[in-house]
């Protein structure tokens, strides 16, 4: 097994294009997968392309009309960054991932490439209308997150590509929140989770609402109908608009963590809670 640790992006892309490799960033998904396979007698592993020494992939920067989150930005870096309220939900997710010693290693890009239905970053990126920047030797392309996530643990990432950044468009006056439901406090996989971004007009009426639900379908989903109905509704009344029908497109599964029926009911409650929390935060700030 070979282990590549390039120190330039060009080298990394060269290796990515010419070898069948596992990209290694923070390792918080790569190592557990390796351990699980070894546990039942499969020690084989692809060659490894460790991108952690590639410069320029870390950190959060503000651009004219968007924010650029480097692929190697860790959960901890996200949580500690000074960011507008638009990122409150994503930053909350950063504090809910695993425990601190996982947050210090795990990267934002690693989370979306793993593309677990329970990935906590994912509904946030959907609600943020984020884009994923992918680079290969052939050049750079940018995909909306929804186009990047193609299915259960599947993405549009090509075999010669590396995710270099997550791009989040600015949204004036927006704030967000994230709620995660699990069976214990720390180190817990989500049973259901909700991310909500809202912006309001001067009168406190919702001008933009973006709501995504995770762990209730193979890929997290936006609640388009609800989002449309919420436009023009005063934020403090938003939670009362939510009905079960708004979650009708979700297709949760039964597994060891919960049943499908429960997931749906919980997601509905969480959507309401998230909207109420946002209204409460506004009220607190106003007071």
């Amino acid at each position: 097994m070979r282990y590549f640790r390039p120190t330039t992006l060009a080298e990394a892309l060269e290796i990515r294009a010419s070898h069948d490799v596992t990209v290694l960033a923070g390792g918080t998904d790569v190592y557990p997968v390796r351990t699980a396979r070894r546990a039942w007698g499969d020690p084989t592993h692809k060659d490894v392309l460790d991108i952690s020494a590639v410069p320029g992939l870390k950190g959060i920067t503000e651009e004219t009309d968007r924010w650029r989150l480097g692929a190697l930005t860790t959960w901890t870096e996200l949580a500690r960054a000074e960011l507008p309220a638009l990122f409150d939900g994503y930053a909350q997710a950063a504090c809910d991932v695993g425990g601190v010693q996982v947050q210090n290693l795990g990267t934002l890009a690693g989370n979306i490439v793993t593309a677990s239905p329970a990935g906590d970053g994912i509904p946030n990126l959907m609600a943020l209308d984020a884009q994923v920047e992918l680079v290969s030797r052939a050049g750079t392309r940018t995909l909306p997150y929804a186009a990047f996530a193609t299915g259960y643990r599947q993405t549009a990432l090509k075999a010669d590509e590396i995710v270099t950044a997550i791009l989040v468009p600015k949204l004036d006056g927006a704030r967000s929140t994230f709620l995660k439901l699990g069976a214990r406090k720390y180190l817990v996989i989500s049973i259901a989770m909700v991310s909500v971004v809202v912006a309001t007009d001067a009168a406190g009426r919702i001008s933009t609402a973006r709501i995504a639900v995770g762990a209730c379908s193979a890929v997290a989903q936006r609640l388009g109908t609800l989002e449309a109905e919420l436009v023009g509704v005063p934020l403090e009344e938003a939670s009362s608009v939510v009905t079960a029908a708004h979650l009708g497109d979700l297709q949760p599964i039964d597994d060891v963590r919960a049943t499908a029926a429960y997931r749906l009911a919980a997601a509905e409650a969480l959507v309401r809670d998230a909207l109420s929390d946002l209204a409460a935060t506004d009220a607190r700030r106003a007071a």
Binding site: G27, Y31, T35, Q101, V102
Partner: peptide, 15 residues
């Protein structure tokens, strides 16, 4: 690692 807690089982020796 550099003063921050991390799981040593998730970090490669090279890193």
């Amino acid at each position: 690692i550099d003063g921050e807690q991390a799981c040593a089982c998730l970090v490669s020796t090279a890193q």
